[in-house]
Nucleic acid binder design. Sequence first.
DNA 1: GTGAAAGCGCTAACAC
DNA 2: GTGTTAGCGCTTTCAC
Lengths: 336, 336
Amino acid sequence: MANVAARAGVSTPTVSRVLTGAAPVSPAKRAAVEAAIAELKFTPNAVARALATGQPRVIAVVAGNTSRYGYAETIRGIEETAREDGYTVMITVVESGEDAVVDHAMAATIAQPLAGVIALKFDSAGAAALRRVPPGTALVAISGARERSVSQAILDEAGAAEELTELLLAHGHRTVSHVRVPASRGEDGRTMGWRRALQNAGRPIPEVFEATWEPRSGEAIGRLIALDRSITAVLCGNDEIAMGVIRGLLVEGCTVPRDVSVVGFDDHPLAEMWSPPLTTAHQDFAGLGRRSFGLLKQQIEGVRDVQFSSARPTLVVRGSVGAPNTARGAAEPRDG
Amino acid sequence: MANVAARAGVSTPTVSRVLTGAAPVSPAKRAAVEAAIAELKFTPNAVARALATGQPRVIAVVAGNTSRYGYAETIRGIEETAREDGYTVMITVVESGEDAVVDHAMAATIAQPLAGVIALKFDSAGAAALRRVPPGTALVAISGARERSVSQAILDEAGAAEELTELLLAHGHRTVSHVRVPASRGEDGRTMGWRRALQNAGRPIPEVFEATWEPRSGEAIGRLIALDRSITAVLCGNDEIAMGVIRGLLVEGCTVPRDVSVVGFDDHPLAEMWSPPLTTAHQDFAGLGRRSFGLLKQQIEGVRDVQFSSARPTLVVRGSVGAPNTARGAAEPRDG
DNA sequence: GTGAAAGCGCTAACAC
DNA sequence: GTGTTAGCGCTTTCAC
C-alpha cells in the first residue's frame, strides 16, 4: 500500500480511504490512486486490515459433525444468511466431547478474530464445545438442552415426536417402540416427546433401542425388532435410521407397514423415495440455521438479552404407517 | 500477551518464545509464563500472528453446495486433515456461476487472511469461483475439468463409470441409458466413461437424461424410463438420483432388477439399505478431501510444481443389476 | 537466555 | 480533504 501511495503521490491513509470509502477523497487523487492500484495490481492485505479494524466478519460454527443430513442442512442455512450479510463462516468439527479433542479443535478457532460463534448441540461434542467459547463472545446454541444464559434456536422436536407417537397409537397400536440416535444429553427432545405421548395415553413404555448415526446400526436394530413379535410400531430418531430399520425388518421377512409400522424424523430428501415412503416429521434445518444466525447478529449488534427461538416440525404422513397386524401384536410387550 | 508477560514478570518476546517454541526458554520462566497463561486464560491472536509471520492458518473451501453427500463428505475430509495440522477451514458457497453471485461470495472470503483455497469443481459454480482466486494464492482444484496450471485432486470417475457400464453389458443388456447430474462442464467423467464403454463395445448410445441434484428429479425420469420399453439398464449420475429412478420405476409398475437394472454412483450410506440394494461405485470423498489438503499444504510450504492426484473408485456389486427382461428389451432403442 | 526496539500492512484519531 | 502520528498483537532482529 505504501508503494501505491508513493506511485499516486498521496499518503497511505488516502489510499486506505479510496479502498474502504470511509471518508471522501477528491476525484483527482482518487483517480490517481485507482490508476496506481491497477498498475501495481495491488490487493489489500486482509490480515493487516483485520488486525487494524478489530472488526471481524467471520463467524465460527462448531459441530460434532458436518456431513449428516440435519447438520449439513443447518450449516447450509447459517452460511446462506451469513453470506448475504457479508459474513464468512468458519467450520470447526469437534469429534467427541473429550477434553483434549475439544481443546485442540477449539484452539485454532478461537485464536481467530471472531464476530460470533454458533454451536450445534445435536450431540454431546457440540455441547462440550459450547463451554470452551471465551466469555464475551457473541454466542448462539442450536438445539440440545435448554440454555439459561445463551441465546438458543431450536426445533420443537418433543412436540413433533409426541404427535408422531399419537398418530401411531391412533392407528390402533398398543404401544410404540423407540430407536434413538446419539444425543447431547441424557434424553433428547424426540425421546421425551415419545415418552410423554405414551404416558399421557397410559401405555407401557418399551425399552429404548440405541442407534449410532449410521443407517447400518438401524438395520441391526430392525432385525432385532423383527424377532420381537410384541413390537408393531416404531418411532425412529431420524429417517436414515428408520430406513435402516425398515431394511432390517425386510431382511427378516417383515413387511412395512403390514407387520410393523415405522416412522422417522427429519424428512430426509430420500424419505419420500423409500419403499414404502416414510411417514416422518419435517424439520426445517436450513430455517433453523437462518434463525440462529439472526440471533447471533442481534448479539453482535449489541442486543444483550438472551433470546429463544423455536419452530414446530410438521408431520408428513406417507405410507409407512398402518394398523397393527393382529397376528403379531399378540405377544406381551416388554416394559422398559 | 502483554498482560501475560507482566503477570509472569518477563518480556513479551519470552512469552512468544514459550508459545511458539522458536527459541529455548529457561524452565523457571517457562513455568511462570505457562501459569500466567492458564490464569489469564490467554489465547494468542491468530491475526496478529499472521501479520507478523505472514503465514495465516486459515484455508477457504469454495463450493457450489455443502449439504449433498459428495460435497459434504469431501469437506469433512478437508476439515479433518486441516484441523490435525492446526489449520482452520472457512466455507464459502457459490450458488451459481453467475458473475455477480460469484463475486459477492468470493469478496468476503478473499478479504480474509488465507493460507490457501480449495475449490470444489463438481459443478459449474465451483469452477467459476476458481477463477476469482487472487493470483499468488495457494490453490487446489477438486474434480471437474483437468487443470493445466493448478494442482488438482480427482476421483477417476470416468474409469469407474466405464466399468459399471461394462458390468451392465456383461449381464446381457444391449445398451445402457444414462441419467446425469449437473456437471461443471459439457461432459463430466461419469458421462464420458459411460460413452466410452458403449463405443468400445460398439453399442448404440442412447440420449442422456438430465437430472438435478434432487432425488425427486430422478423419480420423474424413472417414470419416463418405465414407459420406454427399449430401456433395460440405466447408469445414474449418483446414488440419490438412482434411488429416485428406482422409485419412479416402481410407481409405474416396473421392478428392479427384473424389468430394469439400475446402477448408481458414490456408494451413499443409504445405497446398501435400499430395496434392492444398489450396485454402485464407491467414491472415497473424504479421502479426496484429505488428498487435496495435502496438495494445498505442499503449495503453502513452497512446492511450486503443479501436482495431480487421482484415485480410482471401486465397484460395489449389490442387487440392483440383473439380466435383461426379454419381454422388455424387444423394442428398438432410440439412439442419441 | 533474555529484553529492548523495530516492524508486519493496514486503519483510526487527530490536526491542519 | 489530506497528511501526520499512533497503534492493532504478535514475531523478529539484535544487543547484552
